[in-house]
């Protein structure tokens, strides 16, 4: 699959939450788009990733 434009191999059936946790992302500060559609935070734990997917993760830092 593609994550932020880079090719990546992931374990089958991995959820968005498992991906974020495994890569050190803080879910409460992240927005996730899967194949161009936003994944609501409440569904991070149930939406699973598969090979052809394209995911964008916006990991926010403070400041404005």
């Amino acid at each position: 699959m593609k994550v932020n434009g880079e090719n990546e191999s992931i374990a089958g059936g991995m959820t968005v939450k498992e991906y974020l946790d495994g890569r050190g992302y803080d879910a409460s500060k992240s927005a996730v788009l899967l194949n161009g559609k936003v994944v609501p935070r409440a569904e991070f734990g149930s939406v699973t990733l598969s090979d052809g997917d394209s995911m964008e993760i916006v990991s926010f830092v403070g400041g404005g």
């Binding site: 409460s28 927005a31 936003v38 926010f60």
Partner: peptide, 24 residues
């Protein structure tokens, strides 16, 4: 950062097609 991700998710979910620009 929590509020930033909240509004991005809210606009994309609740206001489809509305352009949003974030600072990060």
């Amino acid at each position: 950062p929590e509020a930033k991700s909240m509004i991005l998710e809210a606009v994309l979910s609740d206001m489809p097609g509305k352009p949003i620009i974030c600072g990060n």
